[in-house]
Design a protein around this nucleic acid. Structure first.
Lengths: 235, 235
DNA sequence: GACAACGTCTCTACAATGTAGACAGTACGC
DNA sequence: GCGTACTGTCTACATTGTAGAGACGTTGTC
């Protein structure tokens, strides 16, 4: 009997049907595993056992592919705009996003960079969802739309800043971490970088979660003082 | 008499001698004028009226060239580690860096992205100078080295976050700014993005400087409360 | 002044990339 | 059964970074 899909060797590759989701998932997996540079059309095609050109059915060009990957990652972020405790919700989102970034460190440059070259309205919708939902959360909590925007900006700015900071000091291989770090610091001319060199040990153990939370406390309480919700939550 | 450099046409091009500084400057100018993608070896060579390969004398490869550009931009930032008023100095640095970013928006992705793929000790020294100097400023102000690092992280994280935020909403052409913005927002499905769409006008006028300063106030006073300098400034 | 050595710049060449355009194979409407 | 639309493939090309060998001019040494 003819098998539904012809295969050169019996149990080799089922060659699953392509779909945007499949393409983006394997793209993300590839980026996670080998970095952004490894994500070429040819390589991704090979990963899917397809001709590279077939990818263009699911992403207009490479840039769109990158956008798709960003979107896919941000879709992992759950936000509950109905949470009555907006501060707690913002804290949770922050920690979730931090973990997301640590789980997909190679995607972070995309998350940060792509919006810089795309006007707000033209970004992939999945990218704008967090913004919309956080606005909803804050407005629901009683902020005026304009105040909500200001809070969002301060909050999201701080959050992304922290993630960038932490990832800059985070070196992939956690075993060699300190070694590499020291090695690196060792190269610095002692005359010009006394403080930095002296901080080697302290740099090595970075409690990212703790620092994030500490910063959030400062920021949220400060924001709550400056901009008080106008009416009772729940509208 | 023979002219010191032979020129095909009299007043055409003096063909100045190459140097690392010249190469990086024109690279920066090119990036400023036409964006990061325009900075190819061939294009830069053409800009300098030299063979592309000659650039490799002054930068090991394209990545090193990008690092050089980052360095060049950061060198424009003046920091005074001896300022007795650390909060004022941090404020000034923040505003300066913001202006620097607005002056070289196309370089910002570099500033943010390159450190993510380079362990601290291997970065171009010019990139580490601000870190070292801010540490010096804080330690001079009486913070313990470890506390200084914490303050630095919160401060620099917030600062970079703000810059990214502002640049995301900043669209190059200031005339069409609002038009493009609206046009963009108009594309969003009304069902899914009610708040974002409603904020169009408010989004349009973003007082970046004001919001930065406001955030700084919150952060600095919060930090000063949490971590008090241990002894009198001036050591 | 001759000559060697060196630093600077150029030429040629190649592998890898994104992607346009024409085509093939398949599924599914009637 | 046949046309139509969708999905995937093949070929081809312009553009990129960069290796490697050499050309040119400047400079130091005898």
């Amino acid at each position: 009997m003819g098998s539904p899909q012809k295969s050169d060797h019996p149990t080799e590759a089922p060659k699953p049907r392509l779909s945007r989701d499949l393409v983006l998932s394997t793209a993300l997996a590839l980026v996670d595993a080998e970095g952004l540079d490894a994500l070429t059309m040819r390589r991704l095609g090979q990963e899917l056992q397809r001709d590279p050109m077939s990818l263009y059915r699911y992403a207009a060009n490479r840039a769109a592919l990158l956008d798709g990957v960003s979107e896919m990652v941000l879709n992992e972020l759950a936000i509950f705009p109905d949470d009555p405790d907006w501060q707690a919700q913002l804290r949770k989102i922050a920690h979730d996003l931090r973990l997301l970034a640590l789980r997909h460190p190679n995607v972070v440059p995309l998350l940060v960079t792509r919006p810089l070259s795309t006007p707000l309205g033209m970004r992939p919708l999945g990218t704008l969802r967090p913004l919309e939902q956080i606005l909803a959360l804050l407005i629901e909590a009683g902020f005026t739309p304009s105040a909500a925007l200001h809070v969002y900006r301060a909050y999201y700015g701080f959050l992304y800043g922290h993630i960038l900071n932490e990832l800059q000091e985070y070196i992939v291989d956690p075993e060699e971490n300190e070694a590499i770090l020291r090695l690196g610091l060792h190269r610095l001319p002692a005359k010009d970088f006394p403080h930095l060199r002296a901080l080697g040990p302290v740099l090595a153990d970075y409690d990212g979660d703790g620092e994030l939370d500490q910063g959030l406390s400062i920021l949220l309480s400060g924001l709550a003082t400056q901009l008080t919700p106008q009416h009772q939550p729940g509208s």
